[in-house]
């Protein structure tokens, strides 16, 4: 449904209805900002990148091919702009092939039991401590709802490596979150 609506808005904008573009900005601003933030880990830079992304997308809207989703096209601009800002050509993918270690870690079910007002702070803290490539893959997969193939296309990381990064990222995220919440509970006691 979103997909068709995006297309309609794009046609409107291309026909000269510029205010219609604000609908797209409203719809994707949080996701674009979240992705930019998780690549760059700085709010001011992420906001600047997000602005650049929407302006770039507007100026090159005619080049958008409707075979792919507008969101995927937009996220490609985010990745390129953010990497450019970071002065990187592509994501660093070293050390991915090392064997996975099956450590004892918490699972998502136990974490969902915590209903705390400051949960946002904990989750963001846990996400921020993930290594760059794991954090970016987790963000793209779970928040930007991109498929493993799309992530591979956007980042240049192979599909197999993305699966490894997602697996590791999940484990690390659960462990870190569990650790943070347990520490907090112990402090309260």
């Amino acid at each position: 449904m979103n997909h068709t609506t995006d297309e309609i808005i794009i046609h409107k904008v291309l026909a000269g209805d510029i205010p219609a573009y604000s609908e797209l900005v409203n719809r994707y601003s949080s996701m674009v900002f979240t992705l930019a933030y998780n690549i760059i880990i700085n709010r001011e830079d992420a906001e600047e990148i997000a602005q650049d992304v929407f302006i770039k997308a507007f100026t090159s809207l005619r080049s958008y091919k409707e075979q792919s989703k507008f969101a995927t096209w937009l996220y490609r601009i985010v990745v390129n702009t953010a990497l450019n800002k970071k002065k990187l050509r592509k994501l660093i993918t070293a050390d991915i092939t090392a064997a996975l270690t099956e450590e004892e870690s918490a699972d998502v079910y136990s974490l969902l039991q915590y209903e705390r007002a400051d949960m946002k702070q904990f989750v963001q803290k846990a996400v921020n401590v993930l290594p760059d490539n794991e954090r970016i893959c987790i963000t793209m997969y779970y928040l930007n709802e991109l498929s493993v193939n799309e992530i591979s296309e956007l980042t240049g990381i192979t599909i197999a490596n993305i699966k490894v990064l997602l697996h590791r990222g999940r484990k690390r995220l659960y462990t870190k979150l569990d650790e943070l919440l347990k520490t907090e509970l112990n402090d309260l006691k």
């Binding site: 996701m31 709010r43 929407f54 928040l143």
Partner: peptide, 23 residues
Amino acid sequence: QLKELLTKWAVQHPSAGFTSQVM
């Protein structure tokens, strides 16, 4: 479940006047 957790808590939002600045 993880998607739910992250969507609920890990989405970042830009500043209030973001859309108007972009527009």
